[in-house]
Amino acid sequence: MNTRDSLLAALVATIWGFNFVVIDWGMADVPPLLFVAIRFTAVLLPAIFFIKRPDAPWRSILAVGVFMSLGQFGFLYVAMSAGMPPGLAALVLQAQVVFTIVIAAGVLREIPSAAQTAGVALGVVGLVIVGVGRGGHVPLTALALCLLGALSWGIGNVVSRAARVPGGLGLTVWSALVVPIPLLALSLAIDGPAAVTDALTGFGWPAAISTLYTAGLASLVGYGIFNSLLARWPSSAVVPWVLLAPVVAMASAWAILDQRPNAAEVGGGVLLLVGVLVALRPRGAVQEEQDLVEEDLCLT
C-alpha cells in the first residue's frame, strides 16, 4: 500500500485497539447482545438518511453486515461478558488475519507473497505466546466464542473485498441494517424482557459514552476507512495492519484498567509488531502494479 493508506490502516488499528477497553468499561450493566444492538442502531441512525446506499447488490451489503458486524461483535461481546479480558480478546480476535488470508486465497485467488506469509506466521506465533502465557485462566467457552467472532470477521473481510464497493462509509452504514433487530430478539430470548427493560431504563453515562465511541469512531470511522482500503488493495496487504490493535489494547488496559501485561504478553506483542513490519515490506512499484492488474483481470 502507499504511505497515505498505510497511515490510515495504522489509525484504524489504534482506534480498534482502544475499542476493547471502551467496550469492557461500558458493558458493565448492559447485556452483551443488547449492547451490540444499541451500538449498531447508533451506527444506522440517523446516518442512513444522509448516506447513499453503496453501489453493490443487496446480497453483498447484507452479507457484510451479517459476518463483519452481527457475527463478529455478537460473539465478541458475549465472549467478553463470559470472562475474556479486553487485551486478550483483542489478541485472540486477530485470528481473523489467518482466516481472511486463507479464505481470500481460496475464494478470490489472492495468493499472499512470501513476505506476507512469513509476517502473518510471526504474528500468529506472537498470539500463541500470549495465549500460552496468559490464557490458562480464561473460560474455554469465552475463548471459543472469541474465535468464532474472528472467523466471522474473516469471512466478512473477504465478502467486502469481493464486492469492491467504493466508499467504505456507505457500506458500513447500510450493512448495519441486519444487526439491531436480530440481536435485540436474541437478547430478549436469552436475557429476558425484564433484564432488557432494566438495562434500557438504567442506561448510564458510561454505556452512553462507550456507545458513542464504538459506533462513531470504531464503526463509522474505522470500518468506513477499512472497507475502502479493502476495495483498493488485496486483503493480504490490508488485514495484517489490524495485528497492531492488540498492542494498543494491552497498553490501554494497563493504563486504564491496571491490567499489567506479563512477559508473554510483552514478548508476543513485540513479535506481532515484527510480523506486521515483515508482512508489509514494500515489494516495489512495478510488482505492485502487476499485482493490481492481475487482480483486476481475475475479478472481471
Rank of each mutant, 00 (worst) to 15 (best):
M250A: 15
S210M: 10
I190V: 15
A199W: 06
S252N: 10
G204T: 06
L177P: 04
M250D: 03
A207S: 13
A199Y: 01
S236M: 06
A255M: 15
A189I: 02
V159F: 06
V179T: 02
G170A: 08
L229S: 02
V247S: 05
T197N: 15
V248M: 14
V159M: 09
A207Y: 01
R232C: 13
S235F: 08
G204H: 02
V248L: 08
A185D: 02
T201R: 15
P182T: 12
T197F: 01
L257I: 14
I225L: 08
V173P: 11
S175H: 13
L244G: 11
W233I: 15
L200S: 04
A218F: 00
T211H: 00
G167L: 14
A185R: 11
G202W: 12
L212A: 10
V239D: 09
I190R: 13
L244D: 07
W174S: 00
V242L: 15
S219W: 04
W241N: 10
F226G: 05
P180F: 00
S228L: 13
S252C: 11
L169W: 10
T197Y: 11
G168K: 09
L183G: 06
A218L: 01
A253M: 13
T211Y: 06
I155P: 00
L220M: 08
W254S: 05
S252P: 01
P206K: 13
V158C: 04
V173I: 15
T214D: 00
V173L: 07
W254F: 11
D198S: 15
L217H: 05
I256T: 05
G204A: 02
L169P: 04
L186E: 00
A237L: 14
V248C: 10
N157G: 12
P193S: 12
V238T: 03
I209R: 05
L244N: 08
A237C: 09
G202I: 10
P182S: 12
L188D: 03
P166H: 03
L220W: 05
L230Y: 04
A163S: 04
V159N: 03
A176G: 07
A185Y: 08
